[in-house]
Computed example of a mutant assay.
Amino acid sequence: MANSSPDKPNIRQVASIAGVSHMTVSRVLNDYPHIKEATRRRVLEVIEELDYRPNMAARALATQRSRRIGVLVESAVEFGPISTLRAVEFAARASGYAVSSIALRDGDEISPQEAVDNLTAQGVDALCVVSPRSSSIAALRRISIGVPMLVVKPEKDPLFLTVAVDQQAGTTLAVDHLVSLGHRDILHLAGPLDWLDARARERAFHTRAKAWGLRERAIVVGDWTGDFAYDFATGLRELPEYTAIFVANDDMAIGLVHGLHDRGFSVPDDLSVIGFDDIPLARHVLPPLTTVRQNFHALGVSVVDMLRAAIEEREIPQTTRIPAELMVRASSGPPRGGRA
């Protein structure tokens, strides 16, 4: 059924052809729950046939909603935060929402309060905070928001909606893989522990290492960068007693492998290395990096689904942890000399 009218189709034309009221069409567009599936399907078919595009400004006036989500990103230079932001933008666009975002970086003069004020001034319907630090969460607790807020962080929170990739499960996969290869002495190269994801991985590592009865060893705290890990590796005086290193992100893991190579050590023959994130480059470095994959697409969909439910006063989805996946590649192998 092609639209022969030179004018753009409107909601009343959709309603007339579908045999429903224009209010029913509006409810379908806004995903109201209590609509018969046959009616919803018929309306959507007519919308597609007419190539109808709702007037977003009119919809905002009618619903008193902007259909815009504000996103505060703790750092837009790290792979995890920027991947989460992109996933949220994609999922929001697919749901008829737009996204406004602000990134906080080290040295910025803008505070979390000012960032939130900037986003709420744009009339957002909800806020999402990506990859926060504990200091930012403390600041957000003191701010009166006025719209639903979701924080992408590993633990639940009494004040905010939360969802995250399951950091504990991902870390467990990494440690169990190394143990299955025979490793019993594993170093953890952590991210900055003010970052909630880094803290979650560090805690999960200690929990799983203790459960396996692995040697207790102090962690090394990095700064997420490959340069830090490279310097750490080249600074090793001799081959260490530990036989594997679990690294909190892929950037540091790749820098570590580079540094170990320049120091004259072989990966995985001398030391096994596992990262976290599965950045696109991870499968192309030499050796290809064993790492924990975070499903950012599923995370973005969950963020938008939860915020839409809160905005539209529907039941909040209960999925708050997205499964992680271990990508086994060539950077992990048995401990040197078969020593466990």
Results as ranks from 00 to 15, higher is better:
Ala121Ile: 06
Ala121Arg: 11
Gln122Pro: 05
Gln122His: 05
Gln122Arg: 08
Gln122Gly: 03
Gln122Ser: 01
Gly123Arg: 08
Gly123Ser: 07
Gly123Cys: 09
Val124Pro: 13
Val124Ile: 14
Val124Tyr: 11
Asp125Pro: 08
Asp125Gly: 09
Asp125Ala: 09
Asp125His: 02
Asp125Met: 03
Ala126Gln: 13
Ala126Phe: 06
Ala126Arg: 10
Leu127Trp: 12
Leu127Ala: 05
Cys128Gln: 11
Cys128Gly: 13
Cys128Ala: 11
Val129Gly: 04
Val129Ile: 08
Val129Phe: 00
Val129Ser: 05
Val130Gln: 02
Val130Gly: 08
Val130Cys: 01
Ser131Leu: 14
Ser131Met: 13
Pro132Asp: 10
Pro132Trp: 04
Arg133Ser: 01
Arg133Val: 01
Arg133Glu: 00
Arg133Ile: 00
Ser135Tyr: 00
Ser135Leu: 01
Ser136Trp: 03
Ser136Asn: 07
Ile137Thr: 06
Ile137Gly: 04
Ile137Asp: 05
Ile137Arg: 03
Ala138Val: 10
Ala139Gln: 12
Ala139Lys: 13
Ala139Phe: 06
Leu140Glu: 12
Leu140Ser: 13
Leu140Gly: 12
Arg141Ser: 03
Arg141Leu: 06
Arg141Gly: 04
Arg142Asn: 10
Arg142Cys: 02
Arg142Val: 01
Ile143Asn: 00
Ile143Gln: 00
Ser144Asn: 06
Ile145Lys: 02
Ile145Gln: 00
Ile145Pro: 06
Ile145Met: 05
Gly146Thr: 04
Gly146Tyr: 01
Gly146Trp: 00
Pro148Arg: 07
Pro148Gln: 11
Pro148Leu: 05
Met149Phe: 01
Leu150Asn: 13
Leu150Pro: 11
Val151Met: 09
Val152Ala: 12
Val152Leu: 12
Lys153His: 12
Lys153Leu: 14
Lys153Val: 10
Pro154Ala: 15
Pro154Tyr: 09
Pro154Gln: 13
Pro154Ile: 15
Pro154Met: 15
Glu155Tyr: 03
Lys156Cys: 14
Lys156Pro: 12
Lys156Glu: 13
Lys156Ile: 08
Asp157Pro: 08
Asp157Phe: 07
Leu159Gln: 07
Phe160Pro: 15
Phe160Lys: 13
Leu161Gly: 14
Leu161Phe: 11
Leu161Arg: 12
Thr162Glu: 04
Thr162Val: 08
Val163Asn: 15
Val163Gln: 09
Val163Ala: 12
